[in-house]
Amino acid sequence: MTSTRLIHSVGVRAMEWLWAHRDGFRLDVDVDPDVGFLERFKPVGELALICKVLLREGVAGSRQAELARRLIDHTWRDTLDGGGMLVRGQRIEPISPIPFEVYLAYKELGYSRPELERAIVLNHRLESWTSYEVAPTRRLGLSAFQRRFGLVPRPPEADLVDTTWLARTPEPWTVTTRIAYHLTHTVFHLTDWGERPEGLPPRLADYLATWLPAWLDDWLDLERWDLLGELLVVDACLPRPTFDERAWEGFAAAQQPDGAMPAVRSMPEGEPDEVFDIVYHPTLVAAFASVMATSRVLTELAHTAS
């Protein structure tokens, strides 16, 4: 059985690193138009989603919860200029779903930018927004986000599940890194980022319970920490998580003393911003996996005790 302390400490250290490097969550207002202003919104949106999970699960220590709250506040006020940058992005690319995807977690945490919400509601009426070509798992996520926002999802999520790789339960030996990221995100969207594990249909939960051990083993040995962390989140979303001891110990051992989690093998070298751009995601994932697994361990303990 994996030590709860070990699982928990990964998240504590990850949050310390994210707070210490909060200025890495930055936008580029003078960006080359070919790159696009919205490109740098992804890290901010992911941070908000994970911090929301951390505050929601309620298993973080007071220090972790405080850091999550401060990171949310910092990025809303400073990075996003109180949501003004989201409005600006929406005006540059009116039917891009990115401002909406970033905004949702902030809205759920009590932040508000009515001007952006008007654009979201208008976009929701557009055939073009619904037809915007994205990967099936992201389309599933967009509908899930519309539901969370209070809109009627277009298309309905039930119509989208079967368009994903995971829902077809394909041959498990064909999984590649790219496929694995798709399937982890399908799980995230079906469960509202771990909030509703019951959102994962039993058929898919059985499939994952059968094959996840093989994938954890593989990406642990490949030292792909970013993907391994996402797979550990998937484990925590299953009806009976395994808290795979070897995977968790390897994952924890890869984490740096300051809390940074390398994406692949060991820490990259380079300018601070370059290093941030490579490791912020695996470090966020480490915080996510830690809080989800800690929450499930404590839930199981509570059930055992009662």
Partner: peptide
């Protein structure tokens, strides 16, 4: 059988 099937997946991946 499930464990051997997992091992098959692992071997193919490797």
């Amino acid at each position: 059988p499930v464990d051997v099937a997992r091992g098959f997946v692992r071997a193919v991946r490797r």
